[in-house]
């Protein structure tokens, strides 16, 4: 199927990506059009699957057929690892990860 600018914008929004704009600056129309066209072309290619004889075929989501191995319910705490993980944060307040206020 063909993708128009609104479709592409909706997808970009769902994916939390900008669409051609940089750092909040509105996209250059030519650049935007090129991105939408490219995306549309890629999606259109996928339509080749319309020809696949999938009637009644069970989807295959993973080649793994073994059952899920359950883990024993035994706790483990690694304080040093927790600190290292926290240390990766771009912004912190005390022991919290910090982001701009939500509401």
């Amino acid at each position: 199927m063909a993708i128009n600018e609104n479709d592409a914008r909706a997808v970009a929004n769902l994916a939390r990506l900008e669409l051609g704009e940089t750092a909040g600056q509105v996209a250059d129309p030519a650049r935007l059009k090129a991105l939408v066209d490219e995306f549309s072309k890629i999606v259109a290619y996928m339509d080749i699957l319309n020809g696949a004889p999938t009637e009644g075929v069970e989807p295959l989501y993973s080649p793994m057929t073994d059952p899920l191995p359950p883990r024993a319910d035994e706790p483990a705490r690694d304080g040093q690892k927790a600190d290292e993980l926290l240390g990766q944060a771009p912004e912190r307040v005390g022991r919290y990860f910090s982001v701009p206020r939500i509401f």
Binding site: R71, D73, E74, P75, A76, R77, D78, G79, K81, A82, L85, L86, G94, R95, Y96, F97
Partner: peptide, 20 residues
């Protein structure tokens, strides 16, 4: 423990200590 990792589920810990 948590659903997908062995971190403890007990409430009341310091923030971001029961993490992996």
């Amino acid at each position: 423990t948590k659903l997908f990792c062995p971190c403890p589920t007990e409430p009341g810990a310091e923030p971001n200590t029961n993490i992996c």
